[in-house]
């Protein structure tokens, strides 16, 4: 259901701060809406985003229902050496979506 898209540079120079842009398709059902029968539609959101670089947690975000559908998250990273960027989105209920890519530091 949820599909992540990520835009991050493949290479960086040492000491450079790079920008990572992410978007994941997800309805972010807030738990505030009602269906046609007047029943509250249960909350189902992406509640947590984590970014690891070379195995270390470098950025995280806790999301509330106030975050828009198809959550867009942009953050910065200063990679000291080449490594793997691993991104994880965690949904209510525990399901996870992930994306990883290598960043080469010259």
């Amino acid at each position: 259901m949820a599909r992540p898209r990520v835009k991050a540079p493949k290479t960086a120079t040492a000491g450079e701060v790079i920008v990572v842009k992410t978007l994941i398709s997800h309805p972010m059902e807030s738990g505030q809406r009602k269906d046609d029968a007047g029943q509250i539609i249960p909350r189902k959101i992406i509640r947590r985003f984590e970014a690891r670089y070379a195995g270390t947690l470098v950025f995280a975000m806790d999301l509330a229902p106030a975050i828009s559908a198809n959550p867009f998250i942009e953050f910065n990273l200063k990679p000291d050496a080449s490594g793997e960027l691993e991104l994880t989105w965690i949904e209510d209920g525990g399901e996870q979506y992930s994306h990883s890519q290598t960043i080469t530091v010259k």
Partner: peptide, 16 residues
């Protein structure tokens, strides 16, 4: 939202 930064962030900025 809560944003958690670290020294590896380089710049403490986030967008959503």
């Amino acid at each position: 939202a809560r944003f958690h930064f670290s020294p590896a962030s380089g710049v403490a900025q986030a967008d959503t």
